[in-house]
Write a protein that binds this DNA or RNA. Structure first.
Length: 210
DNA sequence: ATATCGATTGACT
DNA sequence: GTCAATCGATATA
């Protein structure tokens, strides 16, 4: 029952590889406002606007790839435009967009998304009553955190290394509005390099984490 | 082999 | 505000 997604629309087609060929802090800002798409095997889709990101680089003490090249963070060393998905706290998955060039680890953690379509599916995945997400306040519960996004959009370890430029299963499309403003701040939940202001947020969004 | 802790979340005081 | 859940990756020996 698979229904291919319609990529003829300028706004829904996946961003090309070169979109990601920037260092993480730059890529993290480029990704604000872009649309994250998830299509399940059965054809159902969910999407949301990326409103919060964080940058991590190989020479950054807070990065998983800081000490050495390990099995877990191998995907971070790939070419830009791939996914790095890891499991943390024994409970949650977190989704990163690999950026920069192959051989140098850089990634952007997607921390919060404004739900746009597929809200019922996301609510079900999050264990939230579909009737309740009518209000903005309840919509926030769907994707206002990296673990929540993965649970809502069914992103798990199987997506580690996934190519985001193919437009299949999981991809990102361009920003619709270029007049947005981006706020920055310190990253959340880390113990090293706390001072770097590598967290970026869409100004005015009510769908930020925390 | 064993110990520690984490790019989090939700429940509870 | 505090804290448990829960497990794999990593560090240390």
């Amino acid at each position: 029952m698979k229904s291919p997604y319609n990529h003829s629309d300028y706004y829904t087609e996946p961003l090309p590889r070169n979109f990601y060929a920037y260092s993480a802090p730059a890529a993290a800002q480029r990704l604000i406002g872009c649309i994250l798409y998830r299509q399940l095997e059965d054809g159902r889709t969910a999407s949301g606007r990326i409103v919060e990101t964080e940058a991590y680089t190989q020479d950054d003490p807070a990065c998983h790839a800081f000490n050495r090249r390990t099995r877990r963070c191998e995907a971070l060393y790939g070419a830009g435009g791939h996914a790095y998905v890891y499991f943390t706290y024994g409970v949650h998955f977190c989704f990163n967009v690999v950026c920069g060039s192959e051989g140098w680890a850089e990634g952007v953690l997607i921390r919060a998304v404004e739900p746009l379509t597929g809200l019922e599916m996301m609510a079900k995945n999050r264990g939230i009553d579909t009737f309740e997400i009518q209000t903005v306040r309840k919509k926030r519960l769907l994707c206002s955190g990296p673990g929540k996004i993965c649970q809502a959009m069914q992103i798990d370890g199987a997506f580690n290394g996934h190519d985001l430029t193919t437009g299949c299963h999981l991809w990102i499309s361009r920003r619709h509005d270029d007049s947005i403003k981006i706020l920055s701040g310190v990253r959340v939940g880390i113990s090293k390099a706390k001072d770097r202001e590598w967290r970026f947020m869409l100004e005015g969004s009510t769908f930020i984490s925390k």
